[in-house]
Design a protein around this nucleic acid. Sequence first.
RNA 1: GGGCGGGUGGUGGAAUUGGUAUACACGCAGGACUUAAAAUCCUGUGGCCGUAAGGCUGUGAGGGUUCAAGUCCCUCCCCGCCCACCA
Length: 809
Amino acid sequence: MPYTTNDIRAIESKWQKFWDKHHTFRVHTDSAKPKYYVLEMFPYPSGKIHMGHVRNYTIADVIARYKMMQGFNVLHPIGYDAFGQPAENAAIKNKTNPADWTYKCIAQMHDELKKMGFSYDWDRELSTCDAEYYKWNQWIFLKMFERGLAYKKASSVNWCPDCATTLANEEVINGGCWRCKSVVVQKDLEQWYLKITQYAPALLDDLQKLDQWPSRVRLMQENWIGKSYGVEILFKVTDSQEMIKVFTTRPDTIFGATYVVLAPEHPLVKKLTAGTPQEKDVLAFVEKTANKSKSLRMSGDQRKEGVFIGRHAVNPVNNVTIPIYIGDYVLMEYGTGAIMAVPTHDQRDFEFAKEHKLALRIVIQDPKNPDITAEAMAQAYVDEGALVNSGEFNGIGNEEAKKKIAEWMKSKHYGSITVHWRLRDWLISRQRYWGTPIPIIYCEHCGTVPVPYQQLPVELPKDVEITGEGGSPLARSRGFVECTCPKCNKPARRETDTMATFFDSSWYFLRFCSARNNEEIFGQKDAAYWMPVDQYIGGIEHAILHLLYSRFFTKFFKDLGLITMDEPFVRLLTQGMVLKEGEVMSKSRGNTVDPDEVLSKFGADTLRLFILFAAPPEDQLEWQSSGLEGSWRFLNRVYQMVEKRYKQTEGEPGADLERERNKAIKSVTQSFEEGYKFNTAISHMMVLANAIDKAKTNVDAAIETLVLLLAPFAPHVAEEMWQMMGKKDATIAHAAWPVFDEAALKTSTITMAVQVNGKVRGQIQVAPDTAQDELRKLALADPGVAKYAQDATIKKFIVVPNKLISIVV
RNA sequence: GGGCGGGUGGUGGAAUUGGUAUACACGCAGGACUUAAAAUCCUGUGGCCGUAAGGCUGUGAGGGUUCAAGUCCCUCCCCGCCCACCA
């Protein structure tokens, strides 16, 4: 029977039904068995899966199935990150309800995932928009609220005018909304925050434990958390009692400070300019900056604008009086919102100083250019050098001076040694409908009151019309807003903001451990058994946001005493993007390939095999339809082998084929163990297939091995072949992964290359571990070698055991 | 501007971490089978010279270390990703 398109469909749907019927991938907490938790970043249910999903989930599935065959109790769950704005947009567009739209998409997505043959435990399938799930979001929020980790504050926030909602700092990409790319503006609002900054030290320190994460992801997190050591220095304002506290990481340049810059929003600005001739100009500049969005302020031409405020301050270390400016390049949110400017050794200060014709003073000598004057500098000198013009510190290297000056200033009470973090608290309120309601009630008498736990979930009302305009949609639902205060029973109002959807995905991996538990957020025994996730797989785009938030939540759960581990993901794999003609495959570019089309033409096994063969998982993958046919041909060939050659001959397999068989097991297993190099794993299987084709002896053992090795990659056809081979195991998914015999890999003769003066001139066949004297004779006897080495004096004779001989003449 | 990856045949990609560069596949060319096509199978396939044997050359460019360099060191060019006024 040829392996045709119709056969593929029949085979694949047959085995998908079989797995369903037998619950092949259902697992239970069982402390007697070693566990392995494989997780992919769950999808947003847009309805259709794309090639990115296919790649991500295929990688995960192959790992899960491999671990199963190795005897692990493998947890491999799936769910849907179902809250979020596309559902609202679709609701507006199609005049439907976000819930209806989302559940329809989930059903569709569910079917598509099944068609790929992924080994999910479907009993754990979940959607974050289910009340049984988001109830626990509210539970977490209340636990955080109790501990002061969830709090409300007024501040200038990122606002996306198109999405009509606030955004976290992490959601602003190049000044635009991460979802719709509209320019983000600033707005003063009262919003809910999570105090992720309290965990900043742990989030930074524990990165060291994540030695099985890609180093660049660790580095990205490290930069995002942004710990900097420095000094806070007090500059006294002349003719005033006010002090300006500046933060610097460069105390070694303190003697070079020639002016001070405050952020326009700095509270001292208004105080210091009140009633002065400069007041008008200063206020005008402050207002101008306030109208500029933060994103605009931080991007664009980056020309540094600012004005002199008419006041001066004294540098404590040398009593020099210097002018005070306000400048838009100083940010109120970072450090103290004020800096000491050292134009000679900071490029931003240099540009500002040139623009405003401010003084320059060199305090670090460029060893390559020791005699340069400040006036002659074309840019700031920011590298290392010895201190000059710095009083008692002259001559000291600046790295050493950083520590010495910091200590000295501390002892003189000029300043204090401090640490600043770049990480800000996480803004979680969204003025949207399709998200988890924040479980808070506002009472005129009792103030801000948390919803009691027994009243959870606070369900999303269904009677809300989504218009996309005018603040929180929930505010328009009277039945939702109006409530009674849990404390005093008087009429009160509910919070109408919903939670950012990143909240939902920050702990779903824990929920999977006991997805149907209605009593608790997750079973503690289940979590203790399954967690942490052994292998997590997803896109690099989540390197900061999702992974940082998940780490934060995990640490919080540990502090609650619910779990004992403090990092959720042991090993992280970030899969590369899928490209077509050199560009990322995307809907907006219109260069997508629909997985469905490939499925109907070639089936899931071929698609899976191709997507793994075309590139290593972490690299970009260039989509080539012709490669698909190659994978199809390979599966077909193996199928024909089982059909036509299995159990057709008597006798023993030849030693050569046995060696190839063992070699294939070793290589494929190694490809798994050494960084999931599926492309080479597949090539090793192809090598074995080629050897079987050529073999004249009994091929039964080799075919069995090949089918077993292939099982994680192409599970449907592997099951079919396994059945054709008359195997008793109910499913190849639980068959044992083959083991190799090191002894079978040995050969009686090996080929060694012989080089003369670095060029290969011949090859000799020798027994393994032949003695050097013998090798010398054999090598020189080779005609190709003799031609170059015969009459010459041999200067060196180098042997790389069992590989190569290098003769220098 | 800073950080991190990369650059290997016509294409996707291998190379045991200093040891025979181009495994495996795609594509292409020639052949077999066929009335024919598809499918399948066989052979060849980095470049240059040569009928051949063989020789020279070759991993972005240039230099270096070494018996030996895709791999290590220096200088430069190009591409991708991430972060970007964080003091």
